[in-house]
Design a protein around this nucleic acid. Structure first.
Lengths: 333, 333
DNA sequence: CTGAAAGCGCTTACAG
DNA sequence: CTGAAAGCGCTTACAG
C-alpha cells in the first residue's frame, strides 16, 4: 500500500507537507505543491480514510436503519438519503432490522463505535429508548417516516390529516360504508391514520362499523385474507381505505377474487403512492407521500447535526402529502 | 470518549491486557479478565473500530454498487447481501450509480481507500475496465446479475436459456406472432435474452417480425409508449415477451389502454418475478430469478475472497431460474 | 512556507 | 500471564 511517506519521499518533502498540499486548507508553496501532486499521481496515492478518520474523529459516513429495504416504501427513502449524503461527501451504511429490537440495538452498538457520524432511523417506536439514549449522548440522530415526539428530529407526514382528507374524499364521492384496513397499531403512524378515519366518519355523521375495521399486522400481511373473508361473510362496504398501497393492492385483488369490481362495486383508496400504484388495474387513488424528498430532508438534517448545529432544538419536519385521484374510487350518486 | 486506557486504568492493568481480554484469542488470567470485563461494563466501553481497522488492515465492511435501489430488482439483492454480511460480522455500504461510469469510478476510488474490504457490483458492463483493474490489484470483487466473462467472480442467471424456455412456452401454448420488448442492448444480459428469443423462434420455424422487436432503453422506459404505438399502427402480436417485469406491466397497461385484453387477445410473459407481479391483473407469468439468493451468494463469495481464497480461479455461479405460470398467458388452440 | 514530533486508539511481537 | 514499546497512516499544533 502506498502511504503518505512514499509520496513524501518521492516529492522530496515531509509527510506534513504532503498532507497540507492535499488538504488545500493551508498555504503551500506553489512549486512544492506541484511536486507533491506529481508524486501523488505517479504513485496513484490514495489517503487511508481510516487513519484520517481516527485522527479527525469523524468518518463521513452515516447509518440508515430501516425495517426492510424490500418493503417498497424504503427504496425511495434510501435513495434520497444516499443522494444528499453523496452530495455532501458522505457514504451510507444500510441496515435492515425487520423491526427486531435486539438486532437494532446490536447494529447501533456496532455503528456507534466511531463507524458512523450519525444515524437515521426509519424504525422508531415509542419504546425505542436506545434512540433516546443516543440523543442524550449528543449523538446525531434523525428519524424518518416515524417520530418519537419532540425529543428527536424527525421528518414525517401528517398521517392524521392525510387520512381525514382521504376518507373525506370517499365521503364526498358518496360512500357510506367505509372499511379500513389498518396496519400494526403499535405504530403511532397507524393509530394516527385510524384516528383520521374515525374523525372523518364522525364529522360526517357516518357510522363506524366494527366489522369493517380490519386489523392487519405482520410484515407481509397485505390484508388480502382479511378482506376476502369479510366479503365472503357478506359484509360488503362500498369503499375501503387501505392504510398503505400494498394493502390497497391486496384489497383490490381480494375484491376481484370475490367476483366484485373496483371501483364499480367497491372503491379503494391507498396511502403511499408507490411507483407501481399507477400501473395496477385500476390505477390507484392514494395519498402520495414524498418518500424520496423525506429521505433527502432527513439526510440534510442529519448532516447539519453532524456539522455542529447540535444545540439547536430538535424539530419535526412535516412534509406535504397530496391526494392523487386516479381510477379506483367511483363517484356514487 | 472512553478508550482502552480508561478501561485499563479502572481495571488496574495495561491496555495490552484489556485488548487481549477482549479479543479472547490469547489466554488471560481468569481473575484479570473478570476485572477487565467489569470495567468495560461499568464504563460502557466500545472499542474504536477505526483504530482497530487501521491496525488490522481491514474494516469488515463491503460495498454494494448498484444502478438504483428504486429499480425493483435490487432491493431483494441488497437484502440478500446484507443478510449474509451481517451473519459474518460485516456491514454494507450502499452506492447508487445510475449507471453513470464517472460516478461509479469516483465511488470505487473512495471506497477502495481502506473503507471497504471488498466490493459487489451489479453494474458491470463490458467496458468496465475499472472493475478489471481492481481485480488485477487483487482487490476482492464479485459481480451480481451481470458478468464480465471469466476474469471475475459473478453470480448470474442463464439469460439465454431462460429466454428460450419462456418463448418456447409461448410457442407451445399456440402463439405465432411473438413480440419482444428488449432492454438496453449495450447490456449483455439483454442481448442474451434477445438471442434466446431469436433462437426459440428459429427452432420452431416461426418468423421474427422486425416490427415486433421493440427496443426500449433508458432508466424509466417500461415500454408502454412503444407498445401502444405499435398496437395503434395495427401491428397486433398474439404474445409479448417482456425482458423484465416492469416492461411486462407496461405492456399489460398498453394493451388494456388500446381496448384489448390480456391474455385473451394478447398473452404477456415477463422476466424477474417481482413481488408485485403476483398481484397485478392478470397475475403475471414470468421467469423467476432468485434475486435474494443471488445477493446472498454474491456476499458469500466476496467474504470468502476477503478471507483469503484469493488465489482461487474466478468462478461464474449460475443460479436456477424457474418459469412461473400464472394467468397472463393463454392456451391458444 | 516547512519539518519534526506528538498523538488519534488500537494490536501485537518482544521481553520477562 | 502481563507490560512497555512500536507502529498502523494520517493531521496539526509547535518551532523555525
Amino acid at each position: 500500500m502506498i502511504t503518505i511517506k512514499d509520496v513524501a519521499k518521492r516529492a522530496g518533502v515531509s509527510a506534513s507537507t504532503v498532507s497540507r498540499a492535499l488538504s488545500g486548507k493551508v498555504p503551500v508553496d506553489r512549486e512544492t505543491r506541484d511536486r507533491v501532486m506529481e508524486a501523488v499521481r505517479a504513485l496513484n496515492y490514495r489517503p487511508n480514510v481510516l487513519a484520517k478518520g481516527l485522527k479527525e474523529g469523524r468518518t463521513n459516513t452515516i447509518g440508515l436503519i430501516i425495517p426492510n429495504i424490500c418493503n417498497p416504501i424504503f427504496p425511495a427513502v434510501a435513495r434520497g438519503v444516499e443522494d444528499v449524503a453523496r452530495e455532501n461527501g458522505f457514504t451510507v451504511v444500510l441496515c435492515n432490522t425487520d423491526e427486531d429490537m435486539d438486532m437494532e440495538r446490536s447494529y447501533v452498538e456496532k455503528l456507534q463505535n466511531r463507524w458512523v457520524d450519525g444515524l437515521i432511523f426509519a424504525t422508531a417506536r415509542e419504546e425505542s429508548e436506545h434512540i433516546l439514549k443516543l440523543k442524550q449522548q449528543a449523538f446525531p440522530v434523525v428519524l424518518v417516516a416515524r417520530h418519537m415526539g419532540a425529543a428527536v428530529d424527525a421528518v414525517v407526514v401528517d398521517n392524521y390529516s392525510s387520512s381525514v382528507e382521504a376518507v373525506d374524499y370517499l365521503i364526498k364521492t358518496g360512500h357510506k360504508k367505509i372499511c379500513i384496513v389498518v396496519g400494526d397499531r403499535d405504530l403511532m403512524l397507524y393509530r394516527e391514520r385510524f384516528e383520521g378515519y374515525r374523525h372523518a366518519l364522525e364529522s360526517a355523521g357516518l357510522p363506524l362499523y366494527h366489522a369493517m375495521v380490519l386489523d392487519v399486522s405482520g410484515r407481509d400481511d397485505n390484508g388480502y385474507d382479511a378482506i376476502k373473508s369479510m366479503l365472503e361473510r357478506g359484509i360488503i362496504p362500498d369503499a375501503i381505505f387501505a392504510t398503505s398501497d400494498p394493502r390497497a393492492i391486496g384489497a383490490i385483488r381480494a375484491i376481484k377474487d370475490c367476483g366484485l369490481r373496483v371501483p364499480d362495486d367497491i372503491s379503494v383508496i391507498g396511502f403511499d403512492d408507490l411507483d407501481i400504484s399507477l400501473y395496477i388495474d385500476p390505477p390507484l387513488t392514494t395519498v402520495s407521500q414524498p418518500l424520496y424528498e423525506m429521505g433527502r430532508e432527513a439526510a440534510r438534517k442529519l448532516i447539519n447535526l453532524i456539522n455542529g448545529d447540535k444545540d439547536e432544538k430538535p424539530q419535526i419536519t412535516i412534509m406535504e402529502t397530496r391526494l392523487v385521484k386516479r381510477k379506483s374510487v367511483k363517484q356514487r350518486l
